[in-house]
Design a protein around this nucleic acid. Structure first.
Length: 416
RNA sequence: GUGGGUGUAGCUCAAUGGCAGAGCACUGGACUGUGGCUCCAGUCGUUGCGGGUUCGAUCCCCGUCAUCCACCCCA
């Protein structure tokens, strides 16, 4: 009986895994320089932290969560994103008592029950960063610059940075009602999805892809005109810093983040080389969330990167190189086999990747295996070599061969 | 949840209403202790599954499942 993995759940195998590891280690390295420390939070959380955090009326909460009752009859959910659990932890562990800002990053799987498509999976991996305690625009800018530095470090420099401000609790209601007024006039002419959005999330009408809707919304009020004094100056400062650091970015007044908790700055990094799911990273400020979770009023901002999408781009850009052993030890006869095993272990103990041939086979087939592993060298041990104490080495790339004393094998391969 | 494309060997894909194929990969040999290149041979299939039409279906029809892409939504 053959079993299949679940829909939208992918295996990550070598050699791809090397790309994942290199992105993760770059993230660790660069986040570290910015003072972001790793935080590991559970995959399973009480359902209500996502309802509170992401928003009751969002698709994620309404229809995409893996939610079930545990054996204690509590409703639990597999995390569909990382911010809500981190905020829960920040509040629960009283991390606001630590010096501000507190900066954290996380890495791991998220789960959403959606139809898979290019760049979208039911289990997908995010690396995210969250900074708590600073309201200043320099925090926004620092986070965006850090993200850019990371993406460039891993070899992605042709990405689009889009940025917007969606206001705060003080100014968003006015903007929202202005939009409702505008859309309401010709509401029946919009697509069915937009008519639904009119009720659920009118800001979404702004980035509807239906051409008809694009026409109709010409002249719609923009968020810029409705930002309050505080949001306006904050956004201007963010942009001013990005400009002074020469960080290319596009103002996108239609950039609407779907999660309820966002305030003020929102941003998204997209690629032209992906399918419809082209956002490789996205984030924004969420100045009210900590308070909503029962903590002290604490401004915060964060982002998350979609690992699969980043790995897709990196794989397009360069061949993944297979790891290959330094030396493959081929042996003939029982005695040589044991001696070979000893040498392999000695090499490994000294940090050299060595492979052995596991039992008897013709020398030909052993060398064929060495070649298939792309081993750099073969080391041949047979009766002659045992007798003389001189082992045959062969450089499989250059097709050169020579001998080396058994006692010198380690230094030979270490220096080669 | 909605719409469309695709399901044939381990992989990439042919084929015809009439015996299911190729390339790659794999194993062995040519080469008895020397890989790659070449040549030769060999292994691998309920043509996704179920039903229907037909003398006969991998092909046509219906259903179903899987998968991919797109919508919705989102990293």
């Amino acid at each position: 009986m053959k079993h299949n993995g679940l829909k939208g759940m992918e295996d990550i195998l070598p050699p791809d895994i090397a790309v994942w590891q290199s992105v993760e280690s770059s993230a660790r390295e660069i986040f570290g320089r910015y003072g972001f420390q790793e935080i590991r939070v559970p995959i399973l959380e009480s359902t209500d932290i996502f309802i509170r955090g992401i928003g009751e009326a969002t698709d994620i909460v309404e229809k995409e969560m893996y939610t079930f009752m545990d054996k204690g009859n509590r409703s639990v959910s597999m995390r569909p994103e990382g911010t809500a659990p981190v905020v829960r932890s920040y509040v629960e562990k009283n991390l606001h008592t630590m010096p501000s800002p507190q900066k954290y990053f996380y890495s791991g799987p998220m789960f959403r029950y959606e139809r898979p498509q290019k760049g979208r999976f039911r289990q997908f991996y995010q690396i995210g960063a969250e900074a708590f305690g600073i309201a200043a625009a320099s925090m926004d800018a620092e986070l965006i610059i850090m993200l850019k530095n990371l993406l460039e470090a891993i070899g992605l420099s042709d990405l689009n940075f889009e940025i917007n401000s969606i206001g705060c609790a003080a100014c968003r209601p006015a903007y929202r009602s202005a939009l409702l007024d505008f859309f309401g006039d010709r509401r029946s002419e919009y697509c069915p999805d937009c008519q639904r959005r009119y009720e659920t999330n009118p800001l979404r009408i702004l980035d509807c892809k239906v051409p008809q809707c694009g026409q109709l919304r010409q002249g719609a009020p923009t968020v810029a005109g409705y930002l309050c004094e505080d949001c306006r100056t904050h956004f201007d400062e963010v942009l001013a810093i990005l400009n002074s650091f020469r960080i290319p970015h596009t103002l996108n007044p239609n950039l609407v983040r779907g999660l309820d908790y966002y305030t003020k700055t929102t941003f998204e990094v997209t690629s032209e080389h992906l399918g419809a799911q082209k956002a490789v990273a996205a984030g924004g400020r969420y100045d009210k969330l900590v308070e909503d979770f029962g903590g002290p009023a604490t401004p915060a901002i964060g982002f998350a990167m979609g690992m699969e999408r980043i790995v897709t781009l990196l794989k397009e850009r360069s061949e993944i190189k297979q790891r290959a052993p330094k030396v493959f030890v081929a042996t003939l006869g029982k005695e040589a086999e044991l001696e070979g095993f000893r040498i392999v272990e000695t090499l490994r103990a000294q940090g050299v990747w060595a492979e052995q041939s596991y039992g008897s086979a013709s020398l030909k087939s052993q060398l064929r295996r060495a070649d298939r592993l792309s081993s750099e060298f073969a080391l041949i041990i047979g009766e002659n070599e045992l007798r003389s104490g001189k082992l045959q080495w062969k450089d499989l790339k250059k097709s050169e061969q020579g001998e080396v004393a058994a006692a010198d094998v380690v230094s030979f391969f270490q220096s080669e």
